[in-house]
Simulated scan of single mutants.
Amino acid sequence: MSAPWPLDEQLCFALYSANMAMQRTYKPMLDRLGLTYPQYLALLALWEEDGRTIGAIAQRLGLESSTVTPLVKRLEASGMVVRERDPQDERQVRVRLTPTGDELRNQCGCLAEEVTARSGMTVERLCGIRDDIRGLRRVLDQGPDQGGAA
């Protein structure tokens, strides 16, 4: 059995530390809007498709419903969203944007542009990195029993 690679040679650490740096970059911008990074991601999911269920938001973000519920409750307390039981299935809770939450979309439009500018990379380069990471996630999500890498 061989020794583990040094930390700086670990892909997992590179991804983890890049994620932490990304969150630190977004934090002051989101603080001005009164949002946390997970709340911002939940809003992005709702801006894509308003009226998603808690479960659908969780699935879209790759989180557990039990993680999404408290952050949606905080968004509701701040007036960004409302939660309502689905009339077709009372077990489902749908989340809908309020006018305040919908308006926030316009204020968040420039965040990705600011992050792109801070990176010093072209949009094309960043899109290539994003696509590579998506491909890695797809393979890892498949797992070893479903054709993914061992």
Score class of each variant (00 low, 15 high):
A3S: 07
A3Q: 05
A3Y: 08
P4V: 07
D8W: 00
E9K: 12
E9G: 04
C12R: 00
C12Q: 00
L15Q: 01
A18E: 00
M20N: 07
A21F: 00
M22S: 09
M22N: 03
Q23F: 03
T25G: 13
Y26R: 02
P28I: 04
P28F: 06
M29P: 00
L30Q: 10
R32C: 06
L33M: 13
G34Y: 07
L35M: 05
P38S: 06
Q39Y: 06
A42N: 01
A42M: 13
L43Q: 02
A45F: 05
A45D: 04
L46K: 13
W47R: 11
R52D: 09
T53K: 10
A56N: 11
I57V: 14
A58W: 10
Q59T: 13
Q59Y: 08
Q59N: 09
R60K: 09
R60D: 04
L61A: 04
G62C: 09
E64C: 06
T67Q: 12
T67N: 07
V68P: 02
P70V: 00
L71V: 10
L71H: 05
K73R: 12
L75W: 01
L75R: 00
E76W: 03
E76M: 07
E76Y: 08
A77S: 11
A77N: 05
A77D: 11
M80V: 04
V81M: 01
V82A: 06
R83D: 01
R83Q: 14
E84H: 12
E84V: 10
R85C: 02
P87E: 05
E90N: 04
R91A: 05
R91E: 08
V93F: 02
R96D: 01
R96A: 01
T98E: 04
G101P: 05
E103S: 15
E103Q: 15
E103A: 15
L104N: 02
N106L: 11
N106S: 08
Q107N: 14
Q107H: 15
C108D: 04
G109I: 01
G109E: 10
C110F: 12
L111K: 07
L111R: 06
E113F: 14
E114C: 07
A117N: 10
R118K: 14
S119E: 02
G120M: 14
G120K: 12
M121P: 03
V123R: 15
E124A: 13
E124Y: 11
R125K: 15
R125H: 15
R125L: 15
L126Y: 11
L126V: 06
C127E: 13
G128M: 04
I129R: 08
R130Y: 14
D131P: 02
D132W: 02
